Computed example of a mutant assay.
Amino acid sequence: MNSLAQRLNVDRLLLQAPMAGSQGSALALAVCQAGGIGALPAALLTPEALVQELTTLSQGTSRPWNVNFFCHTPPTPDTAREARWREVLAPFYAEAGLDIAAVPAGAGRVPFSHAVADLVEPFRPPIVSFHFGLPAPDLLARVKGWGSVLLSSATTVDEALWLEAQGVDAVIAQGSEAGGHRGMFLTNDLTTQVGTFALLPQIVATVQVPVIAAGGIADAAGVRAALALGAAGVQVGTAYLCSDEALTSPIHRAALQSETARHTALTTLFSGRPARGIVNRVMRELGPLSPAAPAFPTATAAIAPLRAHFEKQGSGDFSPLWSGQNASGCRSAPAAEITRDLLKGF
């Protein structure tokens, strides 16, 4: 048993990836009850919902669980860029019969803060993880004071070294195959992003803390491959998106289980930050990495009405269909069954 597993009092480190918008505590609990480590994504939760979900988790299992936060820096408002973004989207609004002038600006996702920490502190989560680096030192000190295991994602060796220097307990090596938002934070250069099985051994050889592999792992064979390259554990997301307990929409589920899931790309269109999803109409017509998209997370506000309109028509053409490059493990089944199958790789 490795040091991180010992600290968490588990024999195998199978982490379910936190997937904001596609799950809640039900999925996390199902994974925990089957022998994995479930996660609660907090990025989109209201304060009331966060407390409710943390209460459900803390009362529902004696096993370790993870609560995940974004720790981005909110951007400075850029009215010119916002106007350009709306100009780019205007033809789609006209097609849908929507008034783009009626769309309010909005932040979409709120970073970890002392106000959020005040809500979380009474629960003292077994694990707290971050995406996009780490919060400010005073916030980080609060989390460490709870006795929580501290995790964060690294997409390069440099990011892993930085995280280790800040005192994380383990690094999540997020390969470019992973679905959803890239955790990159020291650079915006997408040419630095490499695959899991190229990134993982480099990070393992460079840092002293345990390394958890994430990206493209969809079955027990993928788990075994990651462990063979030195991973202390694995984090799996896409394979859970069609589970019974996931909140994934019918449109998203259908895409994940179709041939279209074979073609994914990194895109900034839905949030302003690179994230991997299944290629759809808006990605094809605007290009997945549009320079017009406002900075994260402000791009969301103007594209959200298009998403809502077209989803009512049964179309995911303007929806963020998050998926990793390997959706082969994504099936309709109880999360416990998916977890047990993945655990066979340890």
Rank of each mutant, 00 (worst) to 15 (best):
L4I: 13
Q6H: 10
L13F: 02
P18A: 12
G21P: 03
G21C: 04
Q23S: 15
A28P: 00
A28M: 00
C32A: 06
G35C: 05
A39T: 04
A43P: 03
L44C: 03
P64F: 01
N66P: 03
N68P: 12
H72V: 14
P75L: 09
D78M: 09
R81N: 10
V88S: 04
L89Y: 04
P91N: 07
A94I: 10
E95G: 06
E95T: 15
A96Q: 05
D99Y: 00
G108A: 05
P111T: 09
S113P: 09
V116K: 04
L119D: 09
L119V: 15
F123A: 06
I127A: 02
F132H: 11
F132T: 10
D138F: 03
L139G: 14
V143F: 04
G145P: 07
W146C: 13
G147L: 05
S148R: 03
V149N: 04
L150R: 04
L150N: 08
A154N: 00
A154G: 02
T155S: 05
T155G: 09
T156V: 08
A160Q: 09
W162P: 05
L163T: 04
E164W: 08
A165S: 15
A165R: 04
Q166I: 06
G167H: 04
G167D: 01
D169W: 06
A170H: 03
V171Y: 05
G175W: 02
G175P: 06
A178G: 10
G183M: 06
F185I: 12
L186C: 11
T191A: 12
G195I: 05
T196D: 11
L200F: 03
L200G: 13
T206H: 06
P210E: 11
I212C: 09
A213S: 12
G216R: 01
G216I: 10
D219V: 14
D219G: 08
G222T: 14
A225Q: 09
A226Q: 07
A228S: 14
L241Q: 08
E245W: 05
R253H: 09
L256F: 10
S258F: 05
E259W: 07
L266Y: 07
L266R: 00
T268C: 07
L269Y: 10
L269N: 13
L269S: 11
G272S: 05
M283E: 11
E285P: 06
L286C: 02
G287L: 10
L289M: 15
S290Y: 03
A292P: 02
A295S: 08
T300N: 14
P305N: 11
P305Q: 08
A308D: 13
H309W: 12
F310S: 09
E311V: 09
Q313E: 11
G314T: 13
G316A: 14
G316W: 03
F318A: 10
S319W: 00
S319L: 12
L321Q: 06
W322N: 09
A327G: 07
S328C: 12
S328R: 12
S328W: 00
R331Y: 07
I338E: 02
I338R: 01
T339Q: 00
R340Q: 15
K344H: 08
G345D: 00
